[in-house]
Nucleic acid binder design. Structure first.
Lengths: 233, 233
DNA sequence: TTCAAAAAATGACTTTAAGTCAAAAAATTA
DNA sequence: TAATTTTTTGACTTAAAGTCATTTTTTGAA
């Protein structure tokens, strides 16, 4: 009869509706100011309904984090299908990460929230943490794959362990991207202005720094640099 | 008469007492679970008294962050007085940062809290944010200084802009150190275990990666590597 | 179409934890 | 030593998360 299937679909749509409402509010006023009564109002449902679709406020924010990490993971993984060297893939992945954070600050906020939760709190019965984790694992695996491709095609120095290198690039780019986020979204954060540093050139320099570290040799570095310059135009 | 001075000193001691109590609780149960009633109990004062010494809960946590950032800043700046090359200073600063986070997870938690606040919330009348900011500025300036020393003594490639390089090293090491923090303090974080990666060797590799990127030439890199190996014994 | 049973939605209510303040206790000083 | 000022207290207020008895809507067999 298909009633159950339709119900399930409608349920998912309603969850999506609520998540959209919450995202709008987070974008407007930040995650700290997110209030369940307002989410209910924005989503045009009662407060009680929120709790039919999400266990609690944390669960709801993790629902957003799930969407966020899925989107990021897809954008990172998509690089693997391009016809470029492994080193270039690594570069593109970093660029995609930066672009993601810039265009979806509310998504990045939800991912920072998840990062804070994973330390500290017991996550209860929410199904989202493992989903978020899976999304991030997928993105990470794509990174490892790009590095392996680079070692194969000779663009990346194979004296590193691929996974170890992936973790390093992951963490360092997280640090860089976090800086870009603060610069864009926090009026109190003035480190870059005070030192008159431009985010774009900073990120280019980061890639250059990393590039010099992981590339096989001078030729592949030069090759890499010219690629970067071409891309940034 | 000196009564006013004594009162002021006693007031500072009481603030310290309350901060210590809060630190103990954060270490035990995490920042999310921090509860003002429990802080009052732990500090052996009434709840009302907490609000005589701190504007609100946020202010109290920022008080901890002030201590934390001061300690970190001192540890980083102390490297400047050592008789080593600029490149080695940069390395030592990174190492000090890592050690700080490992031995004071509750302090690092308070600094993450500050990081989240600076985006999002209006910080009210608290005097701490600017103090924390100053502490971090001091640490950052020490980093710039180390890089300038390295450019002078020939250990660091001077094709970079010193401040830009400092921001990069700051951000990337923040990312690395954050990873080490999660690994140590979050039972849910399994990225390193799953890929059987050791934090110490990862950090060594990070320094090697960065070292290769910023060092002047092969000789200084080799020199640097042998220094690192000596130190890790 | 009708209506009883099931499912979904509601909002007034409960709970929890931050934050307040009038009254009490302690310290100061004349 | 007693009036005055300063400090402390904990019961109270408030804000926001979370609950649940009741109402509304949907379903599907007669």
């Amino acid at each position: 009869m298909g009633t159950a299937e339709r119900k399930e679909r409608e349920r998912e749509q309603k969850k999506e509706l609520i998540l959209d409402a919450a995202e709008t509010l987070i974008l407007q006023k930040g995650l700290d100011q997110l209030n369940m009564d307002e989410v209910a109002e924005q989503a045009e449902v009662s407060k009680g309904s929120l709790y039919l679709y999400f266990n609690n406020k944390t669960d709801l924010v993790l629902g957003i984090c799930n969407k966020a990490s899925k989107m990021l993971s897809e954008q990172i993984s998509s690089v693997l299908t391009q016809d470029i060297t492994g080193l270039e893939m690594v570069y593109k992945m970093g660029e995609n990460y930066l672009n993601f954070v810039r265009s979806h600050p509310e998504y990045f906020r939800s991912m920072r929230f998840f990062d804070n939760l994973i330390d500290a709190e017991q996550l209860g019965e929410s199904e989202y943490p493992s989903m978020c984790q899976n999304n991030m694992d997928t993105a990470f695996t794509s990174m490892v794959r790009a590095i392996q491709i680079g070692m194969q095609d000779g663009s990346i120095n194979n004296s590193y362990n691929a996974k170890e290198l992936a973790v390093m690039l992951w963490s360092t780019s997280h640090g860089m991207v976090n800086l870009a986020f603060l610069h864009q979204n926090s009026p109190h954060f003035e480190l870059l202005e005070k030192n008159s540093i431009d985010v774009n050139s900073l990120f280019q320099e980061y890639l250059r720094l990393i590039g010099c570290g992981i590339a096989t040799n001078a030729e592949s570095i030069d090759d890499f640099k010219s690629k970067i310059e071409t891309d940034s135009r």
